[in-house]
Simulated assay, not measured.
Amino acid sequence: MPSRLPAIGVDSTGRLHVVWTRYDDGVGKIYYRAWQGSWAAPQERISPLPAYAGFPALAVDAAGQPHVVWYGIREAAVPPPTRHGAIYEIFYTGFDGLVWAPPQLISPGLPDSVNPSLAGDRTGRLHATWYQFDGHWYQVRYAQRGAVWEEPETVLATRFDAFNPDLAIGPRGQVVLAWEHHDGSSSVIQATRRISGRWDDAVDLSDGPSQARHPSVSVAPSGIVYVVWDSDDGQISVREFTSQWEPPIRLTGDGGNTYPSVAASPRGADVVWTHTAQGRSSVRYLRLGPGGTSPAARFSRRAAALGVAAALLAMMGLALLASRRRRRRRG
């Protein structure tokens, strides 16, 4: 069956958890499988029949159990009067060690909600974000789950569209969130932090004339924040937050580079992305150093092209570092 849009996470025992969209009879469904030296069981469908489900995001809790969100369509849903007439909503399920919980709707309101991201903190609390139409604009929405999912909230509502949010959790439980802010014809990457239950004012991370898209966020154990994104000039950039946001740094310089994904660690941060040149595509990888006095000292600019096997190993390593899902697009 055709399959796409995978997400991975690794638990403390080294077990790899994978979810993806598989198109059964042309309709997307979410499937799950685990690897620990070998595939532990056959692939398992975790979204309900017969409705569409796609674009899963995955988090693994401290007990090693997977949690998954996706956007999907409820059976017999009626298209609402939204901009696109969409009927997508965000659903959640989690595994308790025995069974998967029945899928739960977590995006009340107009059913035009897409591209969720999911992360877990050290206490076991889950944090989810997505973007959702409010009747006028697409807004970033955020919800958290302890024992149950709390009512979602809009993050810094504006009179402009906000797309493709991503989030990560810092060592003290602070939430860092980045998204695309669309103001007319421009697209800027913005970010905020949630501290003591309040969102900081949004900060523009990208600059220049290029349209910036597809942010990916990760936080190192030290608390250093990394945000990477691509631009319509085909290049990848990064900004780092320690006590303040450092200036943006371009990581690439040739070909077309899209859909970056970052995972932070005590050693710095690792970035992978799609590189296209002369009609061919490959996965590229870059290690960002943990510190230094200049960009040349801090950022190793040697980007390595990865073959299929190497790419899988690199992705497994990134999952072990971050256990989080990256990449944002409809699909």
Rank of each mutant, 00 (worst) to 15 (best):
V188W: 08
D233Y: 08
N164D: 14
F163M: 04
T252K: 04
H182G: 00
S237H: 15
V262M: 08
D183P: 00
S222N: 11
R239N: 02
A162H: 13
I189A: 05
L251A: 07
S243G: 08
A168Y: 00
A168C: 07
F133I: 00
S261H: 02
W130P: 00
V219W: 07
W229V: 05
S222V: 04
V262Q: 06
E246F: 12
T123H: 09
S243L: 12
G255Y: 03
R122N: 12
Y226C: 00
V203Y: 09
D201K: 11
G256T: 12
Y226F: 14
V203M: 09
N164T: 11
P215C: 08
D200A: 13
Q139P: 07
Q144E: 14
V217L: 09
H214Q: 13
W245F: 07
P171N: 08
D201R: 13
I169N: 01
S185I: 11
R198Q: 15
T258H: 13
P171R: 08
A178Y: 00
V219D: 08
L156P: 00
R213L: 15
G146K: 04
N164A: 15
P247H: 05
S243F: 11
V188Y: 01
T192F: 01
F160L: 12
S206V: 09
L205V: 09
E240M: 15
G208E: 07
D254I: 10
Q244R: 15
D230G: 05
Q235P: 04
R122A: 15
Q190T: 07
Q174P: 00
G124D: 09
D166W: 02
W199S: 07
S222D: 15
S210V: 11
H136P: 00
V217D: 02
R125D: 11
H127G: 01
H136T: 11
V176C: 10
S261K: 06
Y226W: 09
I169P: 01
T158H: 13
I169W: 06
E151N: 11
Q235E: 14
S185C: 02
A202N: 12
G135S: 09
Q190M: 13
R194P: 00
A191E: 04
N257M: 01
S218N: 04
R122Y: 06
H182T: 13
E153K: 10
P215Y: 08
V228N: 01
R194W: 08
R194M: 13
N257G: 06
T154P: 01
G223E: 06
L251Q: 06
L205E: 08
R239I: 05
Y259V: 10
G255H: 02
H127P: 02
V188G: 02
W229T: 05
R172Q: 15
R213K: 15
W229D: 06
L167H: 03
D183M: 08
